[in-house]
């Protein structure tokens, strides 16, 4: 029983980071309804960003978060204006196709630049704190992951407030509801899409910069996160930012509890099995608006 409870606690910690991985997609896919097959590759770029920052500048990888966010915001906007803006004119399937191209391009550019070797971020604050656990009612909570989770939560809530409480967020939502109506009230949809892509890319890259403290960075690291992020956004329900957070926590818990009983290969399978189960009971996702 303690084992399961411990797994739940670990899962919640991991879930917070997943929330940050998924929320970028919740904006691009959930809100703006555009498909990005290369979501995990943006995360990979964030990981490499943090690694490069800490190894060449000898600074803590956590300090890489602001520059990574800034650069990746630009990259996201660029992806929209150069590629997706044109692709948007065609069928939805063209978006899948285009972003598969992006996936090949980003992943293999990373291979070309960094080779496929595993890169570890060393000497950062979080890695120095590793092994330190807080003990609470017989359960131990790893401090580094707790800090990472708290950081993710803060960023997540900031984004939530941005989308739900500001004029900009309102304009974003209006664009996603009805592009023509949004244009009538003076919103420029293409600008909204560009900013949404920028935000989405920045958020997932920041998640990558945080994850770089725990996992090795390598060019192929992204795809499993892509798949997981899609499951989380769909599970949480389209257009629901808060739903994404709760779904991410659920996914973290399902993964870590599964591993208590079954080989690790099954942990994602159980995430998707719960998606199917919940989907069949509630076809609009946990917190979906439709």
């Amino acid at each position: 029983m303690t084992l399961v409870l411990q797994a739940v606690v670990n899962g919640l910690e991991m879930g917070l980071v997943y929330a940050l991985v998924a929320v970028g997609l919740a904006i691009i896919w959930g809100l703006m309804e555009m498909i990005n097959f290369a979501h995990g590759e943006l995360l990979m770029l964030g990981m490499f960003g943090a690694w490069w920052f800490s190894t060449t500048l000898h600074l803590d990888p956590l300090l890489a978060i602001p520059p990574v966010a800034l650069v990746m915001f630009g990259v996201g906007r660029l992806i929209y204006t150069l590629l997706m803006r044109r692709v948007q004119r065609g069928e939805t399937f063209a978006q899948i196709f285009a972003t598969i191209g992006l996936f090949f391009f980003l992943q293999n550019s990373a291979v070309a630049a960094f080779t496929s070797d595993y890169r570890f971020v060393e000497g950062g604050l979080l890695s120095r704190l590793s092994g330190i656990n807080l003990h609470l009612a017989g359960l131990s909570v790893g401090l580094p992951l707790l800090i990472a989770g708290a950081l993710a939560l803060v960023l997540f809530l900031a984004l939530y407030l941005l989308v739900e409480r500001t004029e900009f967020g309102l304009a974003l939502q209006a664009t996603s509801e009805d592009r023509e109506a949004a244009m009538l009230v003076g919103i420029r949809p293409q600008r909204m899409f560009a900013v949404a892509w920028g935000l989405g890319a920045a958020l997932v890259a920041v998640a990558g910069a945080i994850l770089a403290n725990f996992f090795a960075a390598y060019p192929q690291v992204g795809f499993p996160f892509t798949v997981l992020a899609y499951a989380i956004v769909a599970l949480g329900g389209f257009g629901s930012i808060l739903g994404t957070l709760l779904a991410a926590l659920l996914v973290g818990v399902v993964q870590s509890v599964t591993v208590v009983y079954l080989p690790p290969a099954f942990k994602d399978a159980f995430v998707f099995a719960s998606y199917l189960l919940i989907g069949l009971l509630r076809p609009q996702g946990l917190f979906g608006k439709f």
């Binding site: 065609g90 980003l106 550019s109």
Partner: peptide
């Protein structure tokens, strides 16, 4: 070899086709 250059170019070709001819 092994540096993925071929797939980088392949990705660029795919993106070009998608951007120029989104309907095939």
């Amino acid at each position: 070899a092994g540096r993925g250059i071929d797939l980088v170019v392949y990705g660029v070709i795919i993106m070009l086709v998608a951007a120029l001819r989104p309907n095939g």
